[in-house]
Amino acid sequence: MRARTEPVAALLVLVMLIAASCSDSAGPSSPEAGSKGEAPGLSGSVVVSAAASLTDAFADVGEDFSEIHPDVKVMFNFDSSTTLSTQILEGAPADLFAPADEANMRKLTDANLISGEPKVFTRNELVIVTKPGNPEGIETLADLAGAGVISLCGEKVPCGKYAAEALAKAGVTIDESSITRGQDVGATLTAVTDGDAVAGIVYVTDAAKAGDKVEAVSLPEDVNVIATYPIGVLSGSTNIEVARAFMDHVLGGEGQEVLADFGFVPAS
């Protein structure tokens, strides 16, 4: 009989593994609740679905916001903007949306899911990242073709679309079989910092975050692409008051200062 029970156990384990791997892994993360500050009376929690490139900057912005409003809990859901807009269109609860391009915001405004007008709150630029010391001697986008495996974002993710625009402007074609595609900008950067990708195209802010794990090669202005980040409150928000306050905070002086610290370019 034992011969029969063990394959059954293995089957059960397999079924459980499949079930587990199908579940949604991207849980919202929350910053440490801020210590006591002046409380103008806002309370409750808001979920901010924000582009992966905003991960570190928004975590700081969220902490500042929670310090001003100790009774407010800000939770973040960071992923590629395309994944986030899909999640929201599918009915995932969120209070604010901050994608890395206007196309994904438009998907939600077209579906009447945004309350009021979204506002562009910051901008970003693209940069080439290489291994430390730039062993392949990559100086321009053209050097990426034939250099080895290049890490780019998925074609429909904002950072992937921007990279494709920049490559098109420079008239450079990289063979698809030499491209590894990250699902968001974080994964794209990791393929260079921890993987064997020779180089990648990410945002300036991601290159800054990676520090000396990469060498950044800036793009000339005529081929670079400016990424614009809009933010909007979702009409389905259960806490519109707090959501608007967070949006104002991001657009205000304190929020803009934090974004600038991380290398983002002011919106205007």
Binding site: S80, T82, T83, T86, V149, S151, G154, E155, K156, V157, E176, S177, S178, I179, T180, R181, G182, Q183, A191, G195, D196, A197
Partner: peptide, 23 residues
């Protein structure tokens, strides 16, 4: 192994990538 078309982009990876563009 990364996500390289024709070399390491197996079915589950293709599903993940297509979710972004063509559901």
């Amino acid at each position: 192994a990364g996500n390289v078309m024709g070399r390491t982009r197996t079915l589950p990876l293709a599903v993940y990538l297509e979710l972004e563009s063509n559901q």
